[in-house]
Every structure is written in C-alpha cells, then in structure tokens.
Write a protein that binds this DNA or RNA. Structure first.
Lengths: 163, 163
DNA sequence: TTTAATTTTGTTATGTTATAACATTTACAA
DNA sequence: TTGTAAATGTTATAACATAACAAAATTAAA
C-alpha cells in the first residue's frame, strides 16, 4: 500500500490525464475480476467506465441516462445491478451523503476511505489515514461493537476552492 | 461535556425508561429554542417527539404516517420542514446510510458524532471520541481541506446482538 | 455437443425518499 | 390593527431504488 495517502487524492484542480486514470482503472478491474473468478461483463465494465469518466461522484440515474443515450432505452435495474456488482468487488465506492458513486483506485485491497467532498466544485477525493482507522477501531472495540463497514465523509471546501 | 462518551450510548439492550428520555429531550429542546430565539412550534415539537419515541432511527415517511394517523392527512413537506428545522437546531441527527433520523441527546453543543448501527437489531448509538475527531481534523488540515461537516457511521453488530 | 444448471440481462411495475412552487394561515412587532 | 415575516397547507412531481418474473447467455456436466 505504498503511497496510499496520495495516490487516490485528486481534487479537481489537480491537472492529470484523467483518460489515463480510466484506462488504468479498467485494466486493473479486468485483472482483478479474472483473478477472483468473477465476470466483468460488458455492461458492468461500461458502467465502471462511466463512473470513472465522471469527474464528480455520479448518481445512478446519470449513469442510466448516459447508458440510454448510447444503447437505447435502459431500465434502472440494469444500472443498479452493475453498481451493486462493482460495489461488492470494491471497484467503486458509494458516497452515502450524495447517493452517488466514485471509482476506487486501489480495489485490490479492502479498505474504508475518508471522502472529502467539496461543496463548491462538487469533487470528491478519497484519502486514507491509519491514525483515523485505528482511532475508530479502538473506539468500537472498547464498546464491544463488532464493526463491519464504515462510512466517513467530510463536506467542506477543497484546496482549489478555498484559494 | 461531562461523560459525553456514555450519555448518548444506549444500545437496545440497555434497560432504561425511554419515556423519561423523551420528556427530558423535549424539555431541553424547548429551553434551547427559547434561548436561541427560534420557535419550537407544535408541529416541530410533535415530530421531535415521534423521532425520540422511536427506538430505532426513523424514516421521514414513518413520521409522516404517524402524523397522518393522529392529525388526518399530512403531506411530506410538513414532515421534511420540521425535520430540517430540527436538524438545523441540532436536535436530531440524520443517519445518511439509512435515510433516517435519531434524536440528539446533547443538542446544546455543536458536535459530530459517530453512529454505531446494528445491522441485526437496527438500533443506533451515538458516541463521541476526541481521538477520532482530532485524527480527522489533522488529516483534513494537512490536505488543505476546510472541513465543515462530517458524517461517520459504522455498521456492524452491537454488543447485545453479538452475544 | 447437446443438455441442464446457473448467471446475467431485459422488462414492467411499483415502492421509497425528497423537493418545487404557490396558496393560506398564523404570529409578532410596528 | 395592520403590515410583515414566518410557518403551514396543498398539489404536483422529481429523484432514488427494488420486486418480480421472463428471456437470454454462459458455463459445466453428461
């Protein structure tokens, strides 16, 4: 998990070749699914691509409308099934406070990120921090609560929008 | 903020007189609204009471149906307006991952809690931890992200359901 | 390689959560 | 007491999500 903190941090201002990100993510997803013996079908792959192509967290119905544009009438279950699969495989994350989805840039390892959501530009960055993880784990352990899944989202202003 | 950690922690198994909790919460809300110069109208107070009376996080439409039962036909905006007011005043919290609401037992002070949600019994406990708060704050600061609002929810099994 | 079982996708309908827009009433202060 | 602002009522609709069952595609087994 080398440089785990920074790899997934990319506010909107960061100038990077996003097309490259998408390709990399798709390739990695492909490999991962093969190694896990699950099927990254065309539909699933296309949804993953659409999520990645979006520079912001994207809602299910936005995915749906893009899908409908290119493939003709598509129904909600098509999208939700694909999203569910991608979530299960850790290929995307769901931002609860937005009802929206973002690509995950390190799907190989289990993790719960911290999502920084800019209320101004709408971008979301996934970051990780061992200190936070530890603090939460210790707290739940102390209380005898068996944690399984965690959601941590912070709204505010990203560096680009503060400036 | 004496004993802040434990006051708001009450999993379902905890045997306490919940009716008492409700009364206390309503009284405190009343006082708080007076001191803030905002109006805790009958509608708002009744919604707060309904939220508190529920032993689990309660959805807006559950509040709505209870309200309709006792007051005749009621429309969604009535409930959402009351909920919005209560959220603004910190009298309730919204659990994002459940689209549901819980009463807040210490509305006088600004805070962001950690919600422990039992996937078995459905109860939700609000806890606080300075170490977690600090870790998150330090992380966001380091990244130059100006945090304004935070949600932290953990799904798992509460002590009563693990046993 | 045909068949059977399983997984994935298509389709229709509906359930659930939330808000926009505008009319009416209520509270309170000038 | 009347003007103003806040709160509520009302209708309609937007936004998010899933149930249920049919059809097709994939895979494994015979």
């Amino acid at each position: 998990m080398e440089n785990f903190d920074t790899v997934s941090l990319s506010f909107c201002g960061g100038t990077h070749d996003h097309k490259n990100c998408v390709t990399t993510a798709l390739d990695e997803a492909e490999q991962l699914c093969i190694s896990r013996g699950v099927r990254l079908t065309d539909a699933r792959k296309r949804v993953l691509e659409l999520v990645w192509e979006s520079h912001h967290p994207i809602g299910a119905y936005d995915v749906l409308s893009k899908l409908s544009q290119e493939s003709g009438k598509t129904a909600p279950p098509t999208v939700y099934r694909a999203l569910d699969f991608l979530l299960e495989q850790g290929l995307i994350h769901r931002i609860e406070s937005l009802n929206a989805f973002v690509g995950c840039s390190h799907p190989a390892e289990e993790h719960s990120g911290l999502f920084l959501i800019c209320k101004d530009c709408g971008c979301a960055a996934e970051v990780h921090d061992a200190t936070i993880d530890k603090a939460i784990l210790e707290k739940t352990d102390t209380l005898g609560f068996k944690a399984e899944q965690r959601m941590l989202e912070v709204r505010g202003l990203c560096p680009d929008c503060t400036a």
